[in-house]
Every structure is written in C-alpha cells, then in structure tokens.
C-alpha cells in the first residue's frame, strides 16, 4: 500500500512526529483517505524495523524538558522514495470495483431490476460529484496558493474524473441494456430496463 511510501516521502522534508506526519498528509489529500494515528505509528514502527527511518529526539515546543520522539528518513528510506517515484503504479491488476462486480452479477440473475440499480447508483455518484465540485469552487482548492492546496485541488480533480467516468459508464450500460432488451422482444420480461418505481406510465410505444 502506498501510505508507507507517502509517509516516507513526506519525511524527506525533515524529522516529524506522528501527528505532524498525519497533518502533512491530510493537508495534501483532505480526508479522502483518512489515516488514524494508530496506523501512522504502526507504519513508522515497521519503517524503523526495516531501517527506512530512525528515531530522533527533539525538545518540546513549549520549552519544557519533555521530548518528542520524531522520525527521520534514512539513506535507504530515501532510495525507497526515489524508487517509488520512478516506478509507475501498476494497472495490471485493476482495483476491485464493487459496482462493476455488482452489475456483472445483476444482469445475469432473473428478477433483479438492473435499471433501478443503475439509476440509484447514478444519483448517488452524481451527489458525490456535486460535493466534490462544491469543494473545488469554494474551499482552499478554489484559489490554491500553497503547494499543499494545489495538491488537494488535484486530488479533488481525480475524484471528479473518477465519478464522471462512473456516470458515463452507467449511461453506457443503461443504453446497451435497453438495446439488448429491444433486440429480443418478450424473451425475458425482467430484463427490460425501462420501468423504475417512479415511472407511472411505462406505456409501450
């Protein structure tokens, strides 16, 4: 998982303790992929075990004699980061797509109203798309000044493109299912993807 490399890469900026690291990560990605602090420290512990980071002690900011445990990337940590940036993210194994799986199963089962599944999903995805767009035009992503704000705005763009692609795919599925249903009239009534619960007059034309 890329969280490990992402954390390691952020540590190239300088030593940080867990909460700082998490804040820096979320500065760039919003809370799109929330990190809990336990996860951050577990990852840091593993990175330390693997020799990618080392512990440094730093004085607390309040001037007391307490110390923070901070982490610093080692030489091997830095080369792992370079390696990460130099290697494309593989697409050979597509991430598991629950929606594609759901529709693939649904179209083969009698008695499943695929048209309604598609429409409900489209509304839900459209609602997310509206949320992302609102954040894009009103939040700190609207006029990004700091590099972290630009990063966050690009993450939002990624979410927008993903959601848009999903809506287009759903439109495409709907059109193909309609065509398929029209090509085999009366073969199997359940597959006719026209009627939805709200449609009161599904009059055949």
């Amino acid at each position: 998982m890329s969280i490990r490399q992402a954390m390691l890469a952020i540590l190239e900026q300088g030593p940080m303790y867990g909460y700082q690291l998490r804040a820096e990560f979320e500065q760039r990605t919003g809370e799109t992929w929330p990190l809990n602090i336990g996860q951050v420290y577990t990852t840091l512990t593993r990175l330390e075990r693997d020799g990618m980071v080392e512990v440094v002690e730093s004085a607390a900011e309040d001037g007391s004699d307490r110390t923070h445990v901070s982490y610093r990337a080692t030489e091997s940590g830095r080369s792992e980061v370079s390696e990460w940036f130099a290697t494309p993210v593989p697409r050979t194994q597509p991430p598991r797509d629950e929606l594609a799986i759901k529709l693939a199963i649904a179209v083969t089962l009698p008695g499943v109203d695929v048209a309604t599944i598609i429409q409900r999903q489209r509304s839900a995805t459209m609602t997310s798309l509206q949320d992302y767009t609102r954040l894009k035009r009103t939040g700190r992503a609207a006029n990004p000044e700091a590099p972290e704000d630009l990063a966050w705005s690009l993450v939002l763009d990624s979410l927008v493109f993903d959601a848009e692609a999903e809506v287009r795919w759903l439109d495409h599925c709907e059109a193909r299912l309609r065509r398929a249903a029209a090509d085999r009239p009366a073969a199997s009534a359940h597959a006719t993807p026209t009627a939805t619960p709200e449609t009161s007059d599904g009059v055949a034309r």
Binding site: E26, E31, S123, S128, Q130, D131, Y132, T133, T194, T196
Partner: peptide, 29 residues
C-alpha cells in the same frame, strides 16, 4: 455537478433527482 439539483429525464418522465444536501463527512477538514 455545478448545479444545486440534478434532475434525470427518461422518456419524458422525471425518474430521479439529487438534492442539495451538504457535503458528506468525507471532507470534514
């Protein structure tokens, strides 16, 4: 997605509509 509401039409009928609810907790930050 720039709109407050999105209305879906099919065969001359409104089949669905998204409301203008507040963004979900996804982006509390």
């Amino acid at each position: 997605a720039w709109a407050d509401r999105v209305v879906f039409l099919r065969d001359g009928v409104v089949v669905d509509e998204t409301g203008a609810d507040e963004p979900e907790a996804l982006l509390v930050e």
